[in-house]
């Protein structure tokens, strides 16, 4: 299977600070992809470059064989590459219903709006109870559900999640992990950044350790690793 996304030698950063150093990776060849690594080493920056929020200084990003570097975020969303950003800030004064309508804004997603809304409600029944409530009044877990729900409304062909369980209590976190597994079973390939390695091992087939803005280690299917080995990667080098 061809990778749905491949990042080739991307260098990117903010102003004069370079965060990503010639990073390369592939997604979709073996299934879901997990990214992990220490804080502040460029995982979010990489996702921002992929979704067009940040212009790389050099390198190529191929989505479905097409170089999307220089494309607008809107065009990238229009192609079906959907990114759920870290920290679920969302639209604080909009209702859940409004967020869902925005998720279906792109012409590609519009025809599937009703069908996707049903999917979201089935996946997160809690949201249906609070459909008209403002996002700012929701709990952290509910906000994360709205973030992911909004992304599903965009009819993703590839879904990127940046630390979906960040800051959630264990029970909500388990529920959310189960929902993410459901999404994956529904046929949407995922790229997930997570600190919870157990969750990544369960969800993904291929792992990348991102360190100092580059891939330090790639773990392909078959090369199963236990928790201890991964921890030593974190702290070892």
């Amino acid at each position: 299977m061809n990778p749905i996304l491949s990042v080739e030698g991307v260098t990117a950063g903010y102003g004069r600070v370079t965060v990503l150093h010639d990073i390369s990776l592939e997604a979709g060849r073996f299934g879901n992809v997990g990214l992990f690594g220490p804080n502040g080493h460029g995982k979010t920056t990489l996702l921002r470059a992929i979704s067009g929020l940040l212009q790389p200084k050099s390198g190529r990003i191929l989505f479905d064989g097409q170089d999307i570097v220089g494309h607008s975020a809107r065009a990238i969303v229009g192609a079906g590459l959907i990114h759920v950003p870290q920290g679920n800030r969302l639209f604080p004064d909009l209702s859940i219903a409004d967020c869902m309508a925005l998720g279906a804004y792109s012409p590609r997603a519009r025809p599937h709006e009703a069908e996707n809304r049903e999917k979201v409600v089935k996946l997160f029944p809690k949201l249906a109870e609070r459909w008209r409530q403002r996002v700012r009044t929701l709990s952290g877990g509910e906000r994360q559900m709205v973030s992911i729900g909004t992304a599903l409304m965009s009819h993703p062909r590839l879904l990127i999640l940046d630390e979906p369980t960040l800051g959630l209590a264990p029970k909500i976190k388990d529920e959310l992990c189960a929902s993410v597994m459901d999404i994956s079973r529904g046929g949407v390939p995922l790229i997930v950044v997570e600190q919870d390695i157990e969750f990544l091992l369960e969800l993904t087939q291929q792992l990348y350790l991102v360190n100092h803005g580059a891939v330090a280690t790639e773990i392909k299917p078959g090369e199963s690793l236990d928790h201890g080995e991964i921890m030593s990667m974190y702290f070892g080098h």
Partner: peptide, 24 residues
């Protein structure tokens, strides 16, 4: 209207607006 909704959204979070495909 959906366009009005888009205007209200852009007011609140520019990055998130980009990520749902709004023409900011």
């Amino acid at each position: 209207t959906r366009l009005g909704l888009a205007l209200r959204a852009v007011a609140q979070n520019e990055d998130a607006s980009h990520l749902v495909g709004l023409n900011v």
